[in-house]
């Protein structure tokens, strides 16, 4: 067990935590924006998967990592738009529409990959590009901190900066105010002249864009290929991270890091004699525990409000 502590306290573990947190953080921010506007987007899983494939294909075709990234984000936005059209215009139940997107993505990506490259399940014949790693000047030289924080994939930094961007967007801009107003009470927002549908469209498209970034990171940073169902539930974990972070940008940063740590721990524990099945379970068990903690907090808060009301 002493060995285990050594691993957890090592800089490479800290580095791994940030690395595996990146896709979860992107998806969680996406979930956050949609939920803030009162529309739950549970299609993050399928959207990330589609974006991951798009990034690999476009970067292989154009030879440009940037083009791959842009295409992945656009693919994410397109799926967000599609979800919005079905949910807001055609009045499909948004949960079912999102399930449809997830189902389509998990088979559709395999289909598209085969049609495009002839590969079955893994994009081995596509020479896709990996997005560059970035050394942060100054910080890179600091001993421990540098090893943890520097030399990450550029999208890891984009994810961290996105936390601030989302915070500013939601709490400091007119659009953010509209999004919150629509999410809090759509009728009230409507009565003061805010277009509810337009705002929710924007929120869903933005949430798709974040899922697009997450997908691009999966196939062009985390690994350098696309494989069947490579997102492995991260889009669903994001929903839990959003709930646990209580819908606050910095809260979800912490909870995403928590899930990232569980994920990294699962990888690290594989070296020990703990049956690997249980290690694999860790992120999912943590998610359920997180839900319990969140629900208990909310319940006790509701209780408090009730007693206050009575006084």
């Amino acid at each position: 067990m002493a060995n285990l502590m050594d691993i957890i306290l090592s800089t490479s573990f800290g580095y791994a935590v940030l690395r595996v947190t990146t896709p979860i953080l992107f998806a969680t921010l996406g979930a956050l924006i949609s939920i803030k506007a009162g529309v739950v987007n549970i299609s993050m899983e399928g959207t990330m998967l589609t974006a991951a494939l798009t990034g690999v294909v476009i970067s292989a075709v154009t030879g440009s990592g940037l083009a791959g990234l842009v295409a992945a984000v656009l693919a994410g936005m397109l799926l967000g738009l599609m979800l919005a059209y079905f949910a807001l215009n055609l009045k499909t139940d948004i949960i079912l529409a999102a399930i449809a997107i997830n189902l389509m993505a998990s088979g559709g990506t395999v289909f598209a990959l085969y049609i495009i490259s002839g590969d079955r399940g893994i994009s081995s014949s596509l020479a896709s590009i990996v997005l560059p790693k970035v050394q942060i000047p100054l910080i890179h030289q600091i001993p421990v901190v540098g090893a943890v924080l520097s030399n990450h994939n550029i999208l890891t930094y984009v994810a961290l900066l996105s936390v601030i961007v989302v915070y500013v967007l939601i709490y400091k801009t007119p659009l953010g105010l509209r999004i919150r107003a629509v999410g809090e009470n759509a009728h009230a927002a409507d009565s003061v002249g805010i277009s509810v549908i337009k705002t929710q469209y924007i929120a869903l498209i933005m949430s798709g864009a974040f899922a697009g970034f997450g997908g691009a990171f999966m196939s062009m940073g985390y690994v350098s290929w696309f494989s069947t169902n490579m997102t492995a539930g991260r889009g669903f974990i994001a929903l839990a991270a959003e709930a646990l972070g209580m819908g606050r940008p910095f809260g979800v940063l912490l909870t995403s890091l928590l899930f990232g740590t569980a994920d990294a721990l699962a990888n690290a524990l594989q070296a020990f004699r703990i049956p690997s099945e249980f290690v694999q379970m860790v992120p999912y068990v943590v998610t359920i525990l997180g839900l319990v903690v969140y629900a208990k907090r909310r319940q006790s808060m509701a209780q408090k409000h009730k007693t206050e009301d009575r006084v």
Partner: peptide
């Protein structure tokens, strides 16, 4: 896997 696409559209 073409079926996956059909299914998705049908549900939607």
């Amino acid at each position: 896997e073409v079926v996956a696409i059909i299914q998705g559209i049908m549900i939607m």
